[in-house]
Design a protein around this nucleic acid. Sequence first.
DNA 1: ATGGTTGCGAAGCAA
Length: 260
Amino acid sequence: MRIVTWNVNSLPARLPYVLEWAEANGPDVLCLQETKLADDAFPEEALAELGYQVAHYGDGRWNGVAVASRVGLVDPVPGFGSALDEQGCRIVAATCDGVRVHSVYVPNGRSLDSDQYPLKLTWLAGLRSYLAERAKPSEDLVVCGDFNVAPDDRDVWDPAAFQHSTHTSPQERQALEAIVDWGLVDVFRRHHDEGGIFSWWDYRAGDFHQGRGMRIDLALLTKGLADRSTAVAVDRNARKKSAAGNKPSDHAPVVVDVVG
DNA sequence: ATGGTTGCGAAGCAA
């Protein structure tokens, strides 16, 4: 099974790219973030033509997450079903061929002195509670998406440049570790030790071509599922203009292959 | 150089 997570930065703007990429790369499960759509505006037909069923959670112009699957999709659950959903439509779950899949878009936090920063930490704590209440580490389960946290300094182009910013603070990293410690594996690190492999680059100032990025798009798998992973890759080519001339998101898709 | 770009939506904010 090929599981992909991709922050598309508006599905209306990105649909041609997403369809082109999906046809070429054949994800069985495609988790999307920042769809920026209400549920009733989701392009179900375009994805159905490629064989995908979709669980989407979105309420308008911002945020919005989806799980698309061509290997079956049952038991969709939008949101936390708690006050955490007031921070936007940022989590949706569904079961795809026996794997419980969660697509998440963690709040950005904006800056360390913003009122959005403690809300980000609260949201991350809420994600851990959600897992603890509804799932077991012994299940085949994946939590993937845009975490807006770089797990360690290998995941940032220049740690010094982020000394006083979000995405690398000890509190954010600890909140992420608490989620992992529930019983998950950052499966990218099962296959790669090196730094400098990123999933997001700012659109501005030529950051992509200068190598100024971060790895903030993660796939967290329960151990049994991670043990069956055969490869993890970031398709940085998808951060460029596509062969068909479509404009890219500022995030690249992360591709996870598992067997069994 | 507190710059630069994209998306949304129609000015300025969020990322």
